[in-house]
């Protein structure tokens, strides 16, 4: 089952990458990043079946980082929305000059 789980993890990660590249809604881009983190978690769990429970400990850490990232990222999106009235990444070009 480990090989299948790793293949599934690779597929989910790729779908997440494609989502990040194609979508322009900042919130959906964030959700795609969460999907990529989930795919990595799946490989961690698959390897933990082979190498012991350390992989599951790492999954706990990844979940913590994902939660922190979601909180801060969404706060940033809200504060961008206050300035620009939009969450479309096309409209967020303050640094373009």
């Amino acid at each position: 089952m480990i090989a299948e789980a790793l293949a599934l993890s690779a597929l989910l990660f790729t779908i997440g990458v494609v989502g990040v590249l194609t979508r322009r809604n900042a919130i959906i881009v964030f959700m795609c990043v969460e999907l990529m983190l989930n795919a990595v978690n799946l490989s961690f769990v698959a390897f933990s079946k082979l190498y012991g429970a350390t992989g599951q400990v790492f999954v706990v850490f990844v979940m913590t980082v994902a939660a922190a990232e979601a909180a801060v990222g969404l706060a940033i999106i809200i504060s961008i929305f206050r300035h620009q009235e939009s969450v479309n990444l096309k409209d967020i070009n303050l640094l373009r000059g």
Binding site: M1, L8, L42, V45, S48, V59, V60
Partner: peptide
């Protein structure tokens, strides 16, 4: 569900 099937019930 996959985590539970791979003996990672807590995760």
């Amino acid at each position: 569900a996959l985590y539970v099937m791979m003996d990672a019930q807590f995760i």
